[in-house]
Design a protein around this nucleic acid. Structure first.
Lengths: 120, 120
DNA sequence: TGCGATACCCACCAAAAGGTAACTATTAGA
DNA sequence: TCTAATAGTTACCTTTTGGTGGGTATCGCA
């Protein structure tokens, strides 16, 4: 197999938490284990397809675990792995920086809203 | 104008440092002011077009400044703004986490290389 | 005269990422 | 018998992102 080459560490990180959805999903899982439908409610813009696709990729990267209960209707929940928890600090800072960014842009008159400031 | 809505802070952050190139460019600028050609050498995979495009977007977000010297041949350099500096800690952690991620994957036998570990 | 150096721009094309809608399975309960 | 509920898949399409190859401008220098 051809060796995969990175030039700088951040490339690898962004491969894992980059894209439109992964960091958002992880920010929610940072606080609690969540069912599929809970995640979907917490991220109303995401489609069913994207949600499961992104969760599969996070699982493959050993960032989240998937737990299937043997029930009907099905019940599945997701949680950060220990390794996923090592991203917790970064995720928190990304949220806080973004909140501050939105505040600044509002102060400059941009028409912009932040619906929930769930980071403590 | 329709109000832009974010649901969680990290969405705004990712709009600014997300994508394939922005965080890499910023990680380099974290250590020093750099000319266009220096950035191009530091990030050999990037095309001229992408480099200037991403720099324009970072400039528009007030994360970097562009300084043009009145010379021939032209000389332009880029540096983090004060606001851009507020990302410095996050960028550093993203690099370090990625380096650790690469180490782990290597330890598990993946064929993977990290060329430079420039974070102190 | 014509080339090298630097920092662009533009038109065009390819690939990746994301979105929509319709479909599956199973069981409880109206 | 029909419907709701949950989690997921699949095919198909659109949008966004990124890549290539060309072109511009100015000045010094061989």
């Amino acid at each position: 197999m051809p060796t995969k080459t990175y030039h700088i560490g951040v490339e690898a990180t962004m491969e894992i938490i980059g894209g439109k959805w992964k960091s958002i999903i992880l920010c929610h899982l940072r606080h609690q284990t969540m069912r599929t439908s809970e995640l979907a409610r917490a991220i109303p813009q995401i489609s069913q397809k994207m949600l499961t696709q992104q969760l599969r990729e996070l699982e493959a990267a050993n960032i989240v675990t998937r737990h299937v209960y043997k029930q009907v209707p099905p019940r599945v929940d997701y949680a950060l792995t220990d390794y996923g928890e090592s991203l917790s600090g970064i995720l928190h800072e990304l949220c806080v920086w973004g909140e501050d960014n939105i505040d600044r842009r509002q102060a400059e008159g941009e028409e912009i809203t932040l619906l929930s400031r769930d980071d403590v």
